[in-house]
């Protein structure tokens, strides 16, 4: 037998032996896994955002099947997929409204005052405890992009204007940015609403006015305009509670132009045009 043939036999034999071992192992060491786990994993969006509280989509699928976790924790999940998961599990799925993150601040580098030059880490947490990165408004967006860095789908832009803006078309509503913002500016809101109030400053009007051209000064005109339906005051700040749709006329009512119209279902616009210089 030539050395060539013997090599073929040895390698081939070793391969066959290993294949046989693997076959035996697969038979005897088989771990039963509910097929539904794989099915549900495939139905989930696969972004592995962790917004449901589990370590990724596969982990959540296992939790649904094995621990009986609620099926509707996944906010990025499409309605059809959710219905399918509910059918697999034999439960009734409460339909979830699509939620989209929105940054409740509209004070970019032009509209909001910065009193100092900031030299330091380009990180919101770090800037927040270093005098707010020079931003006069103590509750506005710092613009160093901690939210953008955690976003699994790259839906947040921040760089040019030092203001984070969520692209609602890309946003899957996982909520990671909500947790990343040291100033708690980001909120998940139902995607059906079009009128938003982009300010989170709870300080008195006098203080806010000094800091920002588009800050809420607590004049309460908006609350009166809607008769308290859908907007309420929290200290010196008007807050939209997203229970009823708001009229577009609010955009003109607000003297500070805090309200913007932004459809969260359509691809949205990058920073709104500046109403005041």
């Amino acid at each position: 037998m030539s050395p060539f043939l013997s090599a073929v036999f040895v390698i081939g034999g070793a391969g066959a032996a290993c294949a046989a071992l693997l076959a035996v192992a697969a038979r005897f060491l088989h771990v039963f896994e509910d097929p539904r786990v794989e099915a549900i994993t495939n139905l989930l969006p696969g972004a592995n955002c962790g917004g449901c509280g589990y370590a990724g989509c596969a982990d959540y699928a296992r939790a649904i099947v094995e621990k009986g976790a609620p099926v509707n924790l996944c906010r990025p999940c499409a309605a059809a997929a959710l219905a399918e998961i509910a059918r697999l599990m034999g439960v009734e799925a409460k339909p979830v409204e699509k939620m989209v993150a929105i940054v409740r601040c509209n004070g970019d580098a032009v509209r909001s005052r910065r009193a100092a030059l900031y030299h330091g880490l380009a990180d919101c947490v770090a800037a927040d405890f270093t005098g707010g990165g020079g931003k006069v408004c103590r509750e506005g967006c710092l613009g160093y992009g901690n939210c953008a860095r955690v976003c699994p789908v790259g839906a947040i832009t921040f760089q040019e204007s030092l203001l984070a803006v969520v692209n609602p078309e890309r946003c899957i509503g996982c909520g990671l940015c909500v947790k990343a913002c040291p100033r708690h500016l980001i909120r998940l809101v139902p995607a059906g609403h079009e009128i938003h109030l982009l300010c989170s400053n709870r300080e008195r009007g006098l203080v806010t006015r000094k800091a920002c051209n588009v800050g809420c000064i607590a004049c309460q005109k908006c609350v009166k305009h809607v008769n308290g339906q859908g907007i309420h005051m929290e200290g010196h700040l008007a807050v939209v509670d997203y229970t009823t749709p708001l009229p577009e006329s609010l955009l003109e009512i607000c003297p500070q132009h805090c309200f913007v119209k932004r459809s969260l279902l359509k691809p949205a616009p990058q920073p709104e045009p500046t109403p005041l210089s």
Partner: peptide, 13 residues
Amino acid sequence: RPMVQFMRQGKAQ
């Protein structure tokens, strides 16, 4: 490197 800022950030987190 802004070492102290890193430290503060770590502590805060």
